[in-house]
Design a protein around this nucleic acid. Structure first.
Length: 424
DNA sequence: TCTGGGGTCCTAGGACCC
DNA sequence: TCTGGGGTCCTAGGACCC
């Protein structure tokens, strides 16, 4: 059996943990640059606020209903997520963290339903007491069915956060009540196509033949179809190593116009990619740098830059990645183009373990010197903090281009921002 | 005025080989 | 008029997830 633990309205719940006045009040969280709504409390959902709605389109509505609005505080959410996952790892030898707010638990040892219900309640209550985050647990023979179970666990309060699908009768009943679009693996495109073919519930889908599913939904559809029948076919512990690593941002306002501004932003994106590569002990053999103007502005000239760099010798070195990114970007830069770039980023790909790097006879980089410098920089950072030393081209205004007007404090990670309790 | 930021996998088609 | 029969590799684009 698999358990799926899913944090309820995770970002909104994180804000609530440290601000009790937000309880029973609708809460929404905005994306970077305060652009879109990316998380909502139940009260906000009830107001009809949709995921992904641009903030400016619902600003009036939010004010009318006294909705609390927050900028994304990923430092806080990341730390709260780590706490939840740490607690969960105590309940299973096999925890697979699926996203910032979800994890699959291997519950293989527990077959008896009464045991499962009790164990599930313990898990939910432990997370709630330990972190203040409400979670839902769905349990079923496959991961896709565990998702279905958690859908019902959230929908009906009578489950008290734990819903278990452990018999064929329960499975059929659940699938009959599950709209096809709610199934994990059926997305925005497939749903209308299936509905047109008369498939409205997960059960309608399961009742089709395999060849039919294969024809209409390709291989991924067949996998979902089998999972819904109780045949597990989503591989264990997927992708610990990332196959591509991307750092990108939108720029607030009209975007960036000058090469120097772009260079500063890209140098910081390149640095972030280098750090992510080092964290998973990888090197990349290819890098992409991209930038484009706003696709929403038909009244201004449009441009897109997209440059690939193939490396002779894979690397994760900050300086080298910055150099490659910037020289490729400068070649593609249109002097006097007058474009305002709204979004840019760096992607590292063709990733291999850093232990498997092959050198090249024609390498022009002094690797000995490079790694000595990188080691020295790392030691300075360890001793004096992550911002103690940086490349000049990175500038001093990290994240300055982000608009975050509704940011909450970093309650759990910054000593100057921890919560203060006043005694009278 | 204002529209996120990451990832994965699969498939079709083109380029190339003999 | 008529135009083989296998392969491989790469890439772009489409689908999905959070």
């Amino acid at each position: 059996m698999y358990g799926l633990v899913d944090c309820n309205n995770f970002f909104a719940s994180c804000e609530r943990v440290f601000n009790p006045t937000l309880r029973n009040r609708p809460v929404v969280i905005l994306s970077n640059n305060d652009g879109c709504i990316i998380a909502r409390s139940n009260e906000a959902k009830a107001l009809g606020i949709k995921m992904g709605t641009p903030f400016y389109q619902v600003k009036d509505l939010l004010e009318r209903h006294d909705v609390a609005v927050y900028s994304s505080n990923y430092v806080l959410y990341g730390d709260m997520s780590r706490r939840v996952m740490t607690l969960l790892s105590g309940f299973t030898p096999n925890l697979s963290v699926y996203s910032i707010d979800e994890a699959f638990l291997d519950l293989g040892g527990l077959q008896d339903t009464r045991d499962l219900v009790a164990y599930g309640q313990t898990i939910v209550q432990t997370i709630s007491r330990g972190t203040g985050i409400p979670v839902t647990l769905g349990v079923a023979p496959t991961k896709t069915l565990a998702k279905v179970a958690s859908y019902f666990g959230k929908k009906y309060t009578a489950y008290h956060g734990v819903c278990i699908i452990d018999t064929d009768e329960k499975r059929q009943r659940a699938l009959e009540l599950t709209p096809i679009g709610e199934v994990w693996g059926i997305g925005r495109r497939l749903r209308p196509r299936l509905e047109q073919l008369g498939i409205h519930t997960a059960w309608d889908f399961v009742m089709q033949g395999e060849a039919w599913v294969r024809r209409k939904c390709a291989l991924a559809g067949v996998r979902t179809w089998r999972e819904l029948q109780g045949v597990s076919c989503i591989p264990e512990d997927d992708l610990p190593q990332k196959k591509s690593i991307c750092t990108s941002r939108s720029f607030a306002g009209d975007g960036l116009e000058h090469l120097e501004q772009m260079e500063e932003a890209l140098a910081n994106f390149a640095t972030a990619c280098s750090e992510k590569l080092k964290r998973q002990h990888s090197c990349c053999a290819a890098i992409t740098v991209f930038a484009y103007t706003s696709r929403f502005r038909e009244d201004v000239p449009q441009d897109a830059i997209y440059e690939n760099v193939m490396l002779q010798v894979p690397t994760n070195d900050q300086q080298e990645i910055i150099n490659k990114v910037l020289s490729a970007f400068r070649c593609a830069w249109k002097k006097d183009g007058g474009y305002r770039y709204k979004k840019a980023g760096v992607v590292a790909w063709n990733i291999i373990p850093d232990s498997a790097v092959q050198t090249s006879l024609f390498d022009t980089v002094d690797r000995v010197r490079q790694s000595a410098l990188a080691r020295a920089v790392e030691q300075i950072k360890m001793k004096n903090g992550p911002d103690a030393v940086k490349m000049a081209v990175q500038g001093t205004s990290r994240l300055a281009f982000l608009k975050r007007e509704h940011l909450s404090p970093a309650y759990t990670t910054n000593l100057n921002e921890v919560i203060v309790v006043k005694c009278h």
